[in-house]
């Protein structure tokens, strides 16, 4: 596994007085409901926990949700539209996370539509934020229309979120085509979400290898289906804060890969159920006899 997304130099330690040059990563998928926003919240939180300065931009104007996943919905005063229309300064609109001072959110406006911000304006905001943050994560709306074009405008890297379902893979393929057509996107990686090892084992679901082969893209993470995601969303606390959760670990690993560490993928194939262990025991015995 080659190192996913190149590591950044001279950013590991912040030197006061020196301007940073953060990485702008857009998180996109084409299809809705595959876990873009969840991925954004968790990778952002994981990067911040690793000591990086992170800002997340929600570009889903009119349908904002990133604030909910982070539990910040009651703290939003200004939104990205207020910044663009110069009702406030960029720094005023950044909402600090409850737990982690390294983490900020630039919320989307709930009352406006996708035309309220242009590509150029988003580019400028990203450029401005690059000076103060290590990572700028852009949460992209579903679809391939103006909202997508806006979100991609300021980014130089992309994470394409998909699930092992036909419709999600097809849409991911379309998104990859659009990303390849954009010169400013230097690299894109695939994040396979909601993977269900049991279904893959019984040949009812496409495997990780199948999806990677069909899309011929590099993988940055495999996230298992986890009911904990629902409770974490309900509580407004990203699942990476729960060390025991498998999905949380997987997201943490994605964050480490983004930073440049070489982290092996979690082994999801292991069947840990009682039936699985019994089966393994017997097939082991059979294997010896033959």
């Amino acid at each position: 596994m080659p190192l996913c997304i190149e590591p950044v130099q001279s950013q590991s330690k912040e030197i006061k007085g020196e301007t940073m040059s953060g990485r702008v990563i857009v998180i996109t998928s084409g299809k809705g409901g595959v876990g873009k926003t969840t991925t954004n919240a968790n990778i952002g939180t994981a990067l911040a926990r690793a000591g990086k300065k992170v800002v997340m931009i929600d570009t889903d104007l009119g349908l904002r949700n990133l604030d909910l996943l982070l539990g910040l919905e009651n703290r939003i005063v200004y939104t990205i539209v207020d910044v663009v229309e110069e009702r406030c300064k960029l720094k005023q609109a950044l909402v600090k996370d409850k737990k982690n001072p390294n983490l900020c959110l630039l919320a989307a406006a709930q009352t406006r539509d996708k035309t309220a911000v242009t590509e150029e304006q988003l580019k400028n905001i990203c450029e401005e934020l690059k000076k103060d943050f290590d990572f700028i994560l852009v949460d992209c709306p579903a679809g391939i229309e103006q909202g997508f074009q806006n979100a991609v405008a300021g980014a130089s890297e992309a994470i394409v979120v998909t699930t092992p379902e036909m419709s999600a893979v097809r849409d991911a393929d379309r998104i990859i085509g659009l990303l390849e057509a954009r010169e400013e996107i230097k690299s894109y990686k695939l994040l396979l979400n909601r993977v269900r090892p049991n279904l893959i084992k019984s040949n009812d679901m496409m495997s990780v290898d199948d999806v990677v082969e069909i899309l011929s893209a590099d993988l940055i993470g495999i996230i298992p289906e986890d009911t904990g995601i629902i409770t974490s969303t309900n509580k407004g606390e990203p699942i990476v804060n729960d060390e025991k959760s498998l999905a949380g670990q997987a997201y943490n690993n994605v964050a480490r890969r983004i930073i440049g560490e070489d982290v092996p993928f979690l082994n999801l194939e292991e069947d840990n159920s009682v039936l699985g262990k019994v089966k393994k025991f017997f097939s082991g015995l059979m294997g010896k006899e033959k």
Binding site: M166, V169, R170, D173, G177, S202, N203, D204, M205, I214
Partner: peptide, 22 residues
């Protein structure tokens, strides 16, 4: 045992659809 392998059906259908898309 399953009657038909849903995974292979999905893979094959996807390959055809993606070729047309691309």
């Amino acid at each position: 045992k399953k009657e038909e392998n849903a995974k292979d059906v999905a893979c094959n259908r996807l390959r055809v659809v993606l070729m047309q898309d691309r």
